[in-house]
Amino acid sequence: MSRSQFVLRGILVTASLTLLVLTLAASPHPIIVAAVVLLALTVYAAIEPDSVFVTVLLGGHVLHWLSAVPVPADTAAWVGLLVAAWAGLVLHLTASLAASLPGQVPVPRLSLRRWTRRGALVAAVTVPVWAVAMLSGQEAVKGEVSLTYAAIAAVALLTFSVWLLSREDRPRP
């Protein structure tokens, strides 16, 4: 395996551990079993970044967070949430890049620059989402039921449009 692939997988492990540590630190009642499972999955994901276990690992991290950590109440908890979101993003991107190229060859510099730039852009775009969520959370607005339904409908519409765009090419007659 090339050195750059080692580094990529090292970053994957670091991001996963960061996410795990943040969850455990923010949780009043840590779920140790989940932490052990996620640790094992991290090792497997670093070895096989193209496997479905990366999806299980990332989903497990978020579920672990949602089940163990209450909705952030103070600014420090919100900052921790943002770092956790970035760690999840880094985990996903490093696994994707490691799976996109043969493990034996060094990752081309152009790819590294491109993925880093795009990752930073996505991380930056996450900040407004996080800020809006923090503001709405701190205002403790209960919200109206009609608005919730509207948001659900928007997510459903978004899902449908993503599905439409993601369909595989069909051979044209």
Binding site: V62, W65, L66, V69, V71, P72, L81, L82, A84, A85, G88, T126, V129, W130, A133, M134, S136, G137
Partner: peptide, 8 residues
């Protein structure tokens, strides 16, 4: 909102 931030 934390799920929203993690998934975004």
């Amino acid at each position: 909102p934390d799920a929203l931030v993690l998934g975004a």
